[in-house]
Design a protein around this nucleic acid. Sequence first.
DNA 1: ATACATACC
DNA 2: GACTGGTATGTAT
Length: 846
Amino acid sequence: MAPSPSTSAADLLAGSPPPPVPRLASTSPVRLSRASQSASLPPSTSKFRYSAPPEDASTTSVQRPKPSPPRSGPVKTSTLLPRPSPRAQEPQQAGVSSYGQSSAWKGKGKEVDSSVAAPAVATVPQKRPFTSTKSTGPQPAESLLRRLGGPSDQKAGLMRDKEEVRQIIYEASKNSKYFIAQQEKDAQLTLRVDALVARLNRLLAERGGNVKAEQARVDEMIAELEKTRVLTETIVVVDADAFYASCHQREDPSLVGTAFAVGGGVLTTASYEARKYGCSSAMAGFVAKKLCPHLKFISLDFSLYSSCSKSIMAILRQYGDISPASLDEAYCSLTDYCRREKVTPAEAAERMRAQVLAETGLSVSAGVSPNAMLSKVAADKNKPNGQCVIDPTPEACMEFAGGLPIRNVPGIGRVSERILQAVGVHTVADVYRLRGELFLIRNEVGLSFLLRAYLGLGRTTISHADRSQRKGISVERTFHSESNIARFYKRLENIAEALAGDCEKSQYSGRTITLKIKTHTYQSISRAKTLGSAIYFSDARTFYTEGKKLLDKEMANRRQMIARGQIPKGGKDFCLRLIGLRLSNLRDDKATKDTGKLDGWAGTRSKSKAATNSQGKSKVKKEESAPPDELAFESGDLDEEHNRSDLFGDEDDHHSLGFDDEDDVKPTLDGDGDELQQLNNFIRSSQGEHPSSDQLWAAVGDDVDLSGMEGFDEDSADEEDDIKPIDTTHKPFWTAGESLNSKKQTGAGPAPMKDRLSFESKRVKEEMDEDADFFIVEDEPVVGPLKCPVCEKSFAGSEVALSAHVASHFDDEEPVKKKVKVGSSSSAKSVKSVKPRSLKDMFARR
DNA sequence: ATACATACC
DNA sequence: GACTGGTATGTAT
């Protein structure tokens, strides 16, 4: 909200009924709180934010009996380097890790850490001019800068002035289509955030600001979650430092100490020296060059990374079961090792890291704690070449977790971060402080997920990814935007072939195919088609023909839209920058064959007919993979030449680095995540050795990579009778439900979270029965009177009706209106569908 | 079943 | 002029 100093929650909540809101100029965004309107805000001012109630105001006196033994008040964020930057400025020395975080746990009473509390919320907008993303003014929105800054924006660390870096990045990219697209997305997100804040404000107003009852509910949830805490395991996450860069330095020592980057168009990794200039992974090459003019670019060498990775993994395996998360990162259970060797977790990790360094010359950082989530975060703490250990006590876990910026929680990405920050949650500890408020919007915020983070809970078992859990295989390619349909077909062929190659390699077939395209304006579209229930395919021809059908259909739709005067995504020109295909609804051909089972996979009931198909094995080339009749290849769809020579010809011609002269194919670009994490492109773009990707699964140990590692028993990894202690999930950690968006959280503990979840919603319903007048029903049409937060008009109906109405207030806004047109879905719908999607969703969704 | 957004590496 | 690719999941429809 705008600079309204008096905007404390107290003010905001003063009156129970929503404060009278005068009609606002149609140009201004929805304003719900008195605060925001009083703020004479120029239309461009950032939206309103929910201002956190001062601790003592509403949140405080939860004289609630401590729900559970171990936990209680919020972690005394002990000197909590307010919003500690993920990494300390000072590069840590090896072994600096302390067993248990620096400061002592004190959490008991209700200690308000004002440094993170209300003031932070209120001041943020002031400190950084938060220009509306809509304005074309000189000052870009904070959130947009963040977006452009990429994942490393917040990492700060040992680099030059952050603002300066941002400025350079901004200047370098402000005229690109990419920039426009990001701006657009940012604007959409702003709408969404605003709507949520508005809703929260309304809910709070209805309660006169009193959320004690909600806090009590949350405390009960916390107590339940606390019961699931497991502290008997020791999990280490090992993460290599600037992995790709380190690999190259090992090969060429002259690189040591120099500023260089790996990758071309986009950096996959920047050496630590280069990082000082602000260069980071996921950054466009030309931007990096501006930041560091003497930056050297090194070509990718996937086979190098792959072999380095194998060496590391082999060492890790000497310490316990491992679960590689990528080439440079792995989870490992040290529980048995520590017991056997009679060493502390810290010592075990030290040994492990020392051994890796000694034997591979690569430095790795580690995080050690009782669970995967904390270890993962901890691994980043003392990078590079450091480690961080968290004691297996509830106190240590909570203290560590509490001090984390919310964004550091695995599963919280930039969108979630923005949403949470708007509500006042900046650190994990804030989750507790604002639990009452969060309860009111629990569904859109994933409350139980946040609570688990607050408690420092996470997975406690390490297991390999299991073939049967794979959900899909896909291939997508980016290229210079173009509108030539013939070329689209050509690309589709290549993609189809690549996908078939992956399918063959990994032995899967599937029955639904999805076409993905991205317009030159960075808007993506996906169109899917599922063939008959018994029809599984994995051949390039089917991929191509089905993909082409989808593409043709889409183009036809667009033509229709244009004829009707509508504007499809990306404008009237069908100009694309990416095409991809994805196969899902998989069947594990390997399992099918090996076990003699007809259907190796869940959820699909295939007939013997489909299972008979041997395509998985054969080269896609021949007709031996003859698909069922239903898939009969329509030769008419392809030119003969394409059929034979192109569709099945070599396709790797586009994977060199840099743009392909002939095809304009952009091989590989930046990475969004952290380090090198884009193993994919590289697996692909690199040597013919690994022509197709199947990357993560290969790297993570599906059947490809790990099987090659010595000592690894391939079969046992896939076995069903594999002992599954507690956690029945056999997935890489990020699919284990540890995300905000995940409603069924599996994980940390004996009782699968899904039970917990149903428990959660069940309870909510009960509550509503008990205190019907207190809780606003959020899962169903609201019964009580609702008021439009903008114009105060009353609604007797559902929230949906209200949302439609509220959305109408946006109609006068130029930017929004325009965007709506572009973004709205294809077919002609009622007026409703013309509303800003995000806003509508915000209300409709729960 | 389909479309899309979000997240992770 | 110029910002990836593969995979998973959640939510809405």
